[in-house]
C-alpha cells in the first residue's frame, strides 16, 4: 500500500508538449510509472515519446482510462486546466506550479472536494510512492520503499531529507509535497488521515516550516490514542518575523506561526522533534521503533 498513488497508476500529463511535460514523459518512464496520455490543446492526434496526445482531458480519459494527472501549465491558465481535469473525472491531480493566485488555489481546492478528487499542490514537487509510481518531478534517486509516510511543505527539503532517510535504511511508503503556498489541495490534516489509514505506513515524518498553522494539525493528531508515531523537522528557527522566506506561506506574522510555538506544541503532543536536519534520521528511527513495539 501507499497513499493515493500505487503501482496501478495510469498517468496523464496535461501540457505534455511544454518543457516540463516532455521532461516528465522520460523521467516518469525511468521511474516505472506508466504515462498513458498527454493533453495539449490543438495538438490532438500527435504523439510525444510514443505517448498519444489528445486535445481535451475528457477525450484522454475516455480513450486511455488514466487515473492520475500531472498538470504542467503556467499559472495564468492553471485554474482552467485543473478544473477541466477534475470535472473530467480524474480522481488524483498534481499541480506543481508556483506563483498561483490564492483565489485560484481556493477554487481548485473546493472543486476537488466537491468531486471527491485529491489535488496535490500548488507549489509542490508532487507525490511519489517509491518503487511503485511517481506523480511529480522530484529526483527519484532520493527515495526508497519502506514504512515511513512523509509530508513536506518544501520540495528542496523533502529531496535531501528523504535522501538521508533512504541512506539510513529508512524507506518511505509515500512522500507527499503539500506545497509552500497558504492554500493547497491535500493539506496536512488530510495527508495525516491518509497515512493513518494506510496499513503499510508505520510512522509519519512531517517536514514543516515557520508561517501558517498546518503543523498544529499534526499536534492534534499525535494526541489521539490510536495515532501512529510521528517525528517532525521544522525549518526557519533562525528566520526573522515579518519576512517572507521564499515560500508564500513561510512568514511569521504572529507568535503561533513562529518556530518555538510550533515545536512546543508538537513536543507536548509526543511528536519526536529533530532540531536540525542532521537529527532527522535518528528522530525517524525512534518514531519507527515505537511503532515496532508490540502493544503492551
Amino acid at each position: 500500500m501507499s497513499i493515493l498513488l500505487g503501482a496501478d497508476a495510469r498517468v496523464l500529463i496535461v501540457g505534455i508538449t511544454g518543457k516540463f511535460g516532455t521532461f516528465s514523459v522520460k523521467d516518469l518512464a525511468q521511474s516505472q510509472t506508466k504515462v498513458v496520455a498527454g493533453v495539449a490543446t490543438g495538438r490532438g492526434g500527435q504523439a510525444i515519446e510514443g505517448v498519444p496526445v489528445f486535445s481535451s482531458v475528457a477525450a484522454a480519459m475516455r480513450e486511455t482510462h488514466a487515473n492520475a494527472a500531472l498538470v504542467y501549465v503556467p499559472a495564468v491558465v492553471a485554474l482552467d486546466a485543473v478544473l477541466e481535469t477534475i470535472e473530467a473525472g480524474c480522481p488524483l491531480i498534481a499541480y506543481p506550479g508556483d506563483g498561483l493566485p490564492v483565489l485560484d488555489a481556493m477554487e481548485m481546492r473546493a472543486a476537488a472536494l466537491d468531486h471527491g478528487a485529491h489535488l496535490v499542490g500548488p507549489n509542490s514537487p508532487g507525490l511519489i510512492s517509491p518503487g511503485k509510481a511517481k506523480l511529480g518531478f522530484m529526483p527519484s534517486f532520493c527515495y526508497a520503499p519502506g514504512p515511513i509516510g512523509v509530508i513536506s511543505r518544501s520540495g528542496s527539503l523533502s529531496y535531501e531529507a528523504c535522501f538521508r532517510l533512504s541512506s539510513a535504511g529508512l524507506g518511505q511508503s509515500s512522500v507527499i509535497g503539500i506545497g509552500g503556498d497558504p492554500v493547497r489541495g491535500v493539506n496536512a490534516a488530510e495527508a495525516i488521515a491518509l497515512f493513518h489509514d494506510d496499513p503499510e505506513t508505520r510512522a509519519i515524518i512531517y517536514l514543516g516550516e515557520i508561517g501558517g498553522s498546518e503543523e498544529y494539525a499534526l499536534a492534534e493528531y499525535a494526541k489521539r490514542p490510536d495515532a501512529k508515531p510521528a517525528a517532525a523537522l521544522l525549518v526557519g528557527r533562525t528566520a526573522p518575523a515579518g519576512k517572507k522566506m521564499g515560500h508564500a506561506a513561510a512568514m511569521i506574522g504572529s507568535y503561533a506561526e513562529a518556530w518555538a510555538a510550533k515545536v512546543e506544541a508538537l513536543d507536548r503532543a509526543g511528536v519526536v522533534i529533530a532540531r536540525n536536519l542532521d537529527g532527522l534520521a535518528a528522530a525517524a528511527a525512534s518514531a519507527l521503533a515505537r511503532a515496532m513495539k508490540p502493544a503492551a
Binding site: G155, S156, E160, G180, E209, L233, G236, R237, M245, H247
Partner: peptide
C-alpha cells in the same frame, strides 16, 4: 530551495 535554505540557516 526555500526549505533547504532555511535548514542550512
Amino acid at each position: 530551495g526555500a526549505g533547504m535554505t532555511m535548514a542550512a540557516m
